[in-house]
Write a protein that binds this DNA or RNA. Structure first.
Length: 574
DNA sequence: GCCGTTTTCGGCCCGACTGTTTTCAGTCG
């Protein structure tokens, strides 16, 4: 079993949980969690580095001790420290930390007083009314534990960004129409355009906090109010989504928005910068002793610690603070930078609309070209194209292009990459097209070596232009294929072809980390809708969000070029 | 356990809400 960075990160999280239950130094615990986060954000594969005898490079939050543990975990699958901790704490106990309202202190109390060793035992004890008898617990706490354990069975997964946007936009609209509300925005991971959102964080400024709070908990989708104070409330919607609302005075809007946008790691780093300058930063502003020196706007908060404004999508403590300090922040791509779309389908295969309808909608969205890329014959369920049908569509595209104004249809194909890396259509067919988008739709479970070589062979093909949804993942449904993305990206650079960032809300593939990696290797990314109907062009904004999280600028994206420039770049791949 | 533009030792972000207590600990974000 190969050990991936995610596996090492999981071991570190487990160590942190176990140390927490033992009541260890909280900063030591945080060190393990920071190490875990660094590893899961990393593109370098630790196991591979060690295999090639490269040693572990200097990484933020990974010191001598954690580096040694990484090596030990890669070599043995575990580490002595973890095994020692596992022996000291019963196996079901870490799961108790996941129960809302239970932290390490209460878990310890439960173990000591009632010998609770698993969520099941806790559920029984809570039903029998034993929990309330423990000093520090009470009837209400017991009820909350019982309800939380029962609810956990049907626990909601994280929503895709697109799904969350439906709830967020409706709620923000609701709050904005309240007369006492000055500003209302969604902050948190939603504002950072993270691909999935666990809960919504809303921020409101008002002169009447009480009124806003009452209106918020009265929103008709609210099923349960978890907490409600003067400036903060937490509710659960009927859909199961948790929503936190924070209310601050108008002059604190910037500081509060900065704080509630996160990420947590980014905020900690910013506050530490503040500390060094003798400043205290909280959601109400930036303070020098008791004097408020900034906080009206986010810009003012960053300026107070000597930094330029940092875009929300960059705020993950992945190097943005250093880049800001050195004046190297990227000028991030925007939706308006996209000049065209290089992946779409029509009724001819598994799409819903005609070519004309697709073209006109794309044009309405400000696009000036649209590549038609139907599936190839191998994907029979989609009525994929054989050479003859593809040729006939080519004639139709020629005819439409004489009728269409301000937009050009390009002839393409989403050709299946077969198990051995060959393409599903002959060269004579592919050579007649403007671009060839290659995609894997079968044999997703090949070994890392085979899957990687399959992609490399496909990309080596003389007419190959763009690798579509490179990892094949479906968020929350299907894990990415095992691929050595570092090799794929390097191969794309050498070959001169491109990688796609697919805008389908469940794909968003490439992800942010791989986008950044492609950028560092100077491989252009195609931000593509993969539209199967006219409404799918709207998904482009989520892909742009992902691209921004991956530090991409307009120049890093293939389809920010105008048609003439694009044709040159596509021709150069051949 | 990590880290250093005051530091290689002694710090490590900061505040709101709840429940149980009678002034605050625990948890959460």
């Amino acid at each position: 079993m190969p050990i991936h960075n995610a596996d090492i990160a999981a071991r570190f999280e487990e160590i942190a949980d176990l140390l927490e239950i033992q009541g260890e130094n909280p900063f030591r615990i945080r060190a393990y969690r920071n190490g875990a986060r660094t590893l899961s954000d990393l593109t370098l594969d630790m196991a591979e580095l060690l295999e090639r005898d490269k040693g572990i490079p200097h990484l933020p939050g990974i010191g001598k001790d954690l580096a040694a543990k990484i090596k030990e975990i890669v070599d043995t699958g575990t580490c002595a420290k973890l095994e020692e901790l596992r022996k000291a704490v019963p196996a079901g106990v870490p799961a108790l930390l996941k129960v809302p309202g239970l932290g390490p202190k209460r878990v310890k109390l439960l173990m000591a007083a009632l010998d609770i060793r698993s969520p099941a035992q806790l559920q029984r004890a809570a039903r029998e009314g034993l929990v309330r008898e423990i000093p520090g617990f009470g009837e209400l706490t017991e009820r909350h534990i019982r309800e939380a354990l029962e609810a956990q069975l049907g626990q909601v997964k994280r929503l895709t960004l697109a799904h969350a946007s439906q709830y967020a936009e409706a709620l923000v609209d609701y709050l904005r129409q309240l007369p006492e509300v000055k500003q209302a925005v969604a902050a948190g991971s939603y504002r950072r355009a993270k691909e999935t959102v666990g809960d919504l964080d809303l921020l409101v400024t008002t002169s009447d906090p009480q009124g806003v709070m009452s209106a918020f908990v009265a929103y008709d989708e609210v099923q349960k109010v978890l907490s409600q104070g003067e400036t903060r409330a937490t509710v659960i919607l009927a859909s199961g989504l948790q929503v936190d609302l924070r209310v601050v005075p108008e002059e604190s809007f910037g500081a509060a928005l900065q704080y509630f946008t996160g990420s947590k790691a980014h905020n900690i780093a910013i506050r530490r910068l503040g500390q060094r300058r003798g400043l205290k930063i909280n959601e109400y502003g930036v303070f020098k002793r008791t004097r408020r020196v900034a906080g009206d706007s986010e810009q003012s908060v960053y300026a107070a610690v000597g930094l330029p404004y940092v875009e929300p999508e960059l705020r993950e403590d992945r190097g943005e603070i250093e880049a800001a300090r050195e004046g190297h922040l990227p000028h991030l791509i925007t939706l308006e930078d996209l000049k065209g779309d290089l992946h779409s389908h029509s009724k001819a295969t598994d799409g819903r609309n005609t070519l004309m309808e697709m073209a006109e909608t794309a044009r309405e969205q400000g696009l000036t070209y649209l590549a038609v890329t139907e599936h190839s014959r191998r994907l029979a369920v989609t009525k994929g194209f054989d050479p003859a049908r593809l040729a006939r569509q080519g004639e139709e595209i020629d005819r439409l292009n004489t009728e269409l104004k301000d937009i050009t249809l390009l002839k393409g194909i989403e050709v299946d990459i077969l198990e051995d890396g060959r393409l599903d259509l002959p060269d004579s067919t592919l050579s007649s097209l403007d671009l060839v988008v290659g995609a894997v739709h079968s044999h997703l479970a090949l070994s890392r070596k085979k899957q990687t070589e399959r992609l490399l062979r496909a990309m080596d093909h003389p007419y190959f232009s763009i690798l579509a949804h490179p990892t094949g993942r479906l968020i929350g449904e299907r894990e990415p294929c095992e691929i050595d993305m570092e090799r794929v990206i390097r191969a794309a650079r050498e070959r001169g072809c491109f990688l796609e960032l697919n805008a389908h809300p469940e794909r968003l593939d490439l992800n942010d980390i791989y986008c950044k990696m492609a950028k560092s290797e100077c491989v252009l990314v195609s931000i593509a809708s993969d539209a199967h109907s006219v409404i799918d062009f709207a998904n482009l904004r989520f892909a742009v969000g992902q691209a921004r999280r991956g530090w991409l600028e307009a120049a890093d994206v293939l389809n920010t070029r105008n048609l003439a420039q694009l044709r040159l770049l596509l021709r150069a791949t051949r």
